[in-house]
Structure formats: C-alpha cells, structure tokens
Write a protein that binds this DNA or RNA. Structure first.
Lengths: 130, 130
DNA sequence: ATGATAATGGTATATCATTATCATAGCGAA
DNA sequence: TTCGCTATGATAATGATATACCATTATCAT
C-alpha cells in the first residue's frame, strides 16, 4: 500500500482516450461527450476532476483563449498555435509558428512568450455555408 | 426634445477621458479607478453602462484576451496587437503586426483574421524585480 | 471473494464578470 | 426656477465555468 492509491477506472480511461484521439484541444464539455461514447454515464464533475489531475500530472495542458472556455490538449507537443472555427467553435492545432522571431516591443519591455490565434472556417464547416 | 435625450454627465465625461488618456486598453475596473480620479463616486455599473454605449457608438472596441477580463480601447487604430505584463497585468498596444502574412492552415481551412499576444514584463515592472 | 477506501454521479454551491433593478440625483429644455 | 425624464449608484440577479459535497459505486491488494 502506497501513500496514495490511484485506481484505474473506465471513466478515467475514457477521458484520457478522448483527449488522445482528438488530435486537437477539447473543452470539458467536448471531452464529456467524447468520453460518453466510450463509457456512457460519465459525469461532468468527473471530467473536471480528471482534467485537473491530468494537468497536475503534466499529461494535459490548458489552452486559454479569448472569450471562450478553456480547452485542454495533450502536453509535450512542440511549439504551435491554434485555429478556431467561427462556425462550430472547434479549436485546431496549427503546425509551426507564424510569429516573427522578434516582435518590436516598447522601450524597456521584456518578452517571455506569445500566443497566436487564427480565426476562420474549418474544412468541415465550409460546405455548409455554400 | 429629440426621440432620445442623451445627457452629458460628469461621469460620462470622466469615463471617456479615462480611455482617451490611457493610450492602452483598459478593463472596466481600470476605467473605474481612472474615472474616479476625475469624478469621485463613479460607480462600476455606470462604467459598464457607458462602455456598452461607447462600443455601440463605435467609439470603443472590445479586446478579448485569454484567461483575463475583456479590455476596451478607443476604436479606429490601425491593425495592431497587444502585450500583457505578467507582473501588473496591464495590457499595452504593440505597433504593427508580428504575424506572417500567410500562416499555413490545414487543408480546406479558410482564415478570416488573427490575434497575437505577447507576454512578458513591462518597463514599469522590471526595476521592481531586480 | 472480501473489504478498505478511492472514484464517481448528481447536484448544490463558489467564483467572477456582467447585467438588471429601482429609488434618487441632477441634466437641460422651457 | 421649474419639472420631466435620463443617468446614476448601490446592490441584487444573472450566466458561464468550475469546484464542493456526499451518498453510492467500484477498484484492487489481500
């Protein structure tokens, strides 16, 4: 018996699977719907609990975005940014970095990082707008 | 008497002044503190009300940002992005655009706009960290 | 299979930004 | 100066997101 006894549950597995298979950042609600496909009856509280645990473990990474709920994505990807579809709201990964190496800052300012978001319409939503 | 009778109040003037003099986007709380310098007793509800009116008039523009309250800045500036100080939380304007002209998107995606945020330490906060 | 206890599900509650309510103050036209 | 009516200030209510609570379920070492 260890100090903390972590158990593997179907819900936990379903939630991890949801993020692992998504290939894009998911909101808690999206993760819920996806996890429920694998294990019906998963509750939203369990999703939040597991997200928090997975973030603490370093397996998940929060993706905060302007004016919308926080998404979470599997950690460890190389530097990249995101695209949000104006139609469906889904967030997608963008490969690479579209930022200049050195954005010019006001005198005396020091940069430590940056975020870049592209907005538009995803492939799945374009046909629907014809 | 016109259909709608808009009155000029000291509060309204103080709030507009706050944004006009800031030269950077302000949160409602920041606008409140600044407006109270010009007219003590201004309430936060009045700030929100006037911000809403000024946005509808097109004089103010909302600036949504990741994981923090919406800021508002005087409209009509040319394309630019923002810098947020990790120490004091203030948002500053950055001149120009640090984004590549054409970020590569997944197949079939269409871009309509982008946002860029730089994080770091502002000039005012660097001495305090020595 | 058993049992100690971690984890869950359903829901109430916390949190925070913003909006609505309403009695009162104070613009401004006459 | 008067007076109608808008704007204000204080605060309650709201909406969205996230956490707390607790009775019940289910994992896993034995």
């Amino acid at each position: 018996m260890s100090i903390r006894d972590i158990r593997n549950t179907r819900q936990k597995t379903a939630i991890r699977e949801a993020f692992a298979e998504a290939n894009r950042p998911l909101s808690p609600e999206e993760a819920l719907r996806s996890a429920q496909q694998l294990h019906p009856g998963v509750g939203i509280a369990t999703v939040y609990r597991n997200i928090q645990t997975l973030v603490e473990e370093g397996w998940l990474q929060p993706v905060e975005l302007p004016g919308d709920a926080t998404r979470y994505e599997v950690a460890g990807k190389k530097h990249h940014h995101h695209f949000q579809c104006n139609e469906c709201g889904k967030l997608y990964d963008l490969e690479g970095c579209a930022a200049q190496s050195k954005p010019k800052l006001p005198r005396g300012f020091r940069a430590s990082g940056h975020e870049f978001f592209v907005y538009g319409t995803c492939a799945a939503c374009i046909p629907a707008r014809q």
